[in-house]
Amino acid sequence: MDQLLLILLNGLVYGLLLFMLSSGLTLIVGMMGVLNFAHASFYMLGAYVAFSISTLMNFWVALIVAPLVVGALGALVEQYGLRAVHKHGHLAELLFTFGLAMIIGEVIQLIWGRWPVAYRVPESLDFPLFSIGGTAYPAYRMFMMGVSLFMFVVLYATLARTRLGLVVRAALTHPDMVAMLGHNVPRVFTMVFAGGCALAGLAGVIAGNAYQTDPGMALALGAIVFAVVVMGGLGSISGALIASLIIGLVQTVSIGLDMKLSTALGRIGLHVDGITALSDVWDISINRAAPVVPFLLLVIILAINPRGLAGSRSS
C-alpha cells in the first residue's frame, strides 16, 4: 500500500511535469497548426541554461531567468523563423521545427558536451520531507509539484480570466476571424509560442536536476509529450491535463511493477497461461514494457475517438 502511494506521488509529479510541456505544445499546435518538433528541445535548453546559471550564481536565479531566456529565444524563433516559413505551408513548418530540434541538440553538445552535466538539486531542498513506509520522500519532488501546480493556476487564470486568454481561446477555432475582428493575431502567435517555450524551459529547470540533464533528454520526453497532446486532443488544455496525468501515472506505475504480464493479468482474474502462442508476450515484465505504455494508450484512445479525449478539431 505504501509502495503504491509512493508510485502515485511520483506519477503525479511526472504527470504535472508532462503537462508543463504539453499545455504549451497543445496551444501552439491548436492555434497555429504547427506541429512543433522542437518543443522538447526548449525543455532541454531550459535544463542546460539553468545548469550554467546555477553554477555561476544559484538555482533560484536560474529558476526565474532560464525560462525567460528560453521564452525570449522562442519569440525570436517564431518571429524570424516560423513566420517566414509559414507562407510555404505546413510541410515547410514541420521541416523547420525538425531542423531546429537538431540544431538545438547539436549546439547543446558543442557547448556542454556529450555527457550528462552535474546539474544538482539545490542543497536547501535536498532533504527528505517525510517518509512513507520507511522510504524517505525527497522535498524537491514536492517542490516540483508545487511549481507545476502554480504554473497550472497561472495558465488557467490567464486563459479563463484575461482578454488575451479569450483571444487565444477564440483563435483555437477561427484564427482568421479573430484577426478580422481587429486582433493582432500574428503578435498573439508570437506570445503563445514564447509562452509555451518558457513553460517548457521551466519544466527543464525543475526536472533537469531531479532526473538527468543530458543531450538525449529532449528525444526521450519529446515523443511522450506528442502522445499526450494527441491523446488529449489538439488545442485542448483540459485534455492535455487529463492525458498528462494518465500517462504520468500509468508510466510510473508500470515502471514500478516488477512482475510478468501473465502474473499481473492473473491478479485481476485473467488467466492467460493457456494461450501458449503468446507466451513470449506474457513473459515480458511490465517495467520493461513501460516505455511502450504511453503509445499503447494513445493508440487505444485514438481508435475510440480520433479527436482525442477533449479535442474539438480533427485536422
Partner: peptide, 30 residues
C-alpha cells in the same frame, strides 16, 4: 486583416465563424 479591421471595415463571414466554446457574451466582447 487586423489593420483593415482597425481601419473600420467589419466583416461577417458566411460560415459565421462563431467561437463555439466561448459564451455569447465572450463572443460579443471579442
Amino acid at each position: 486583416p487586423h489593420d483593415i479591421a482597425r481601419a473600420g471595415i467589419g466583416y461577417v463571414a458566411e460560415d459565421r465563424a462563431i467561437f463555439p466554446d466561448l459564451t455569447t457574451y465572450q463572443n460579443l466582447i471579442l
